[in-house]
Amino acid sequence: MTSKIEVLEAALTSALGDAAVSVTTALGEVTVVVKAAAYLDAMRTLRDDPALKFDQLIDLCGVDYSTYGEGAWGGLRFAAVSHLLSLDHNWRVRVRVFAPDDDMPVLASVTGIWRAANWYEREAFDLYGILFEGHNDLRRILTDYGFIGHPFRKDFPISGYVEMRYDPEQKRVIYQPVTIEPREIIPRVIREETYGMK
């Protein structure tokens, strides 16, 4: 007897063909990695193919893989990961696509397929610097419009580059370089020999 996940894997492999780099299952969840060049067509296929019918985009987020696996990662740095839901078939899939250029990560926008992608793609742009080609309003959504950098990138400093404060002389909020000295905090753990025993 074929399980529901095996049916989904077969349908994904058949529908996506060469656009899929891999279709894997782990912990009861199916993940499809698609080629960046075929990303838009693959997402449209996932929505429109009658055997799949992924009509809802549940989530889309950016990922920075630069230090993934204790730094052992050797692949591309930035990816967009989407979670799709099919109401008709009652199944889910995770779709991962890697931006081909680490210095300027650009992927196609799926806002024309699922309107819900609008704010998700803006968030991925704001926090990771992933550009979505074809998005008609790609601007910051969580950080200030004058913010410098992308705070979820692994190489972004914890203290940031600038800080803001209210200046009573100018009677307005101003930005200035960070005044905090960077330091490494190492937790100190002291335990007694009989700690936790009675």
Rank of each mutant, 00 (worst) to 15 (best):
M1G: 15
I5F: 10
V7G: 11
L8S: 07
A10P: 08
G17M: 11
V21D: 08
S22P: 10
E29D: 11
T31K: 15
T31P: 03
V33M: 05
V34G: 00
K35T: 12
A37L: 11
Y39T: 05
L40A: 12
D41H: 01
T45H: 07
T45C: 10
L46Q: 05
D48S: 10
D48R: 07
D48C: 03
D55N: 08
L57Q: 00
I58Y: 05
D59N: 09
D59Y: 01
L60D: 02
L60A: 11
C61H: 00
Y65Q: 05
A79K: 06
V81Y: 05
S82V: 07
H83S: 11
H83Q: 14
S86N: 10
D88F: 09
H89D: 09
W91S: 07
R92P: 03
V97W: 00
P100H: 01
M104L: 14
G112H: 02
A116R: 01
R122M: 04
A124L: 06
F132C: 01
E133W: 01
G134A: 06
H135W: 12
L138K: 02
R139H: 15
D144I: 03
Y145G: 09
G146P: 06
F147V: 08
P151F: 02
D155W: 04
S159R: 15
D167Y: 02
R172T: 15
P177Q: 03
T179Y: 06
P182Q: 07
I186R: 13
P187V: 13
P187D: 14
E192P: 04
Y195G: 03
M197T: 15
